[in-house]
């Protein structure tokens, strides 16, 4: 997996899945979920403001609440390439990895600000902002296997010998 470079959007602690993708948006077709990314947050017009490849940096417990996989799907569809948070709720973390959206545990919320451009090497565990670099635990081998396969469905296909 190559180095991910993008503009940062900083969010606070406890961004729940109702903020990432509100309940009403779950009655919309899958193809349009990206239009509702972060629609319940304090940046409701998020999809219009971001560029493809942008990165979310958040505090504790990102993705808590509902198990809706529409939440990481919406972020990925809107163009988000990576979510970095001090910690994640378990179901969101697994959902994101399962659809091939990288998530990274690192406490960067107070070290970067919205608008900064950072480069992140997931395998080496290194984020770079200008002359500053931040180290973190690289993704586990198991997670990288799923991400590099393009998500869990591809991995299951390999395991079942469908491919």
């Amino acid at each position: 997996m190559e180095v991910i470079k993008g503009q940062v959007w900083v969010f606070d602690d406890n961004v729940d899945t109702d903020q990432i993708l509100p309940g009403y948006a779950m009655a919309e077709s899958f193809e349009t979920l990206g239009n509702f990314a972060m629609a319940g947050s304090n940046i409701p017009d998020f999809p219009k403001r971001i560029k493809k490849g942008d990165i979310i940096v958040a505090g504790k417990n990102f993705g808590c609440g509902s198990s809706r996989e529409q939440a990481p799907v919406a972020l990925a569809q809107a163009g988000i390439s990576l979510v970095i948070a001090e910690s994640f709720a378990r179901i969101f973390r697994r959902n994101a990895i399962n659809i091939g959206l990288p998530v990274l545990n690192a406490d960067l919320k107070d070290k970067v600000k919205t608008g900064d451009v950072i480069s992140v090497d997931l395998e080496k565990g290194l984020a770079v902002l200008g002359n500053n670099s931040f180290e973190f635990n690289p993704l586990s081998e198991n997670v990288l296997l799923t991400l590099n396969a393009g998500g869990l469905i591809n991995r299951v296909r390999q395991e079942l010998g469908v491919v």
Binding site: E69, P72, N98
Partner: peptide
Amino acid sequence: IGVGSTELAAAMAT
């Protein structure tokens, strides 16, 4: 145990 849709699909298969 709560999971997302993709993990559920995988469980239905395997």
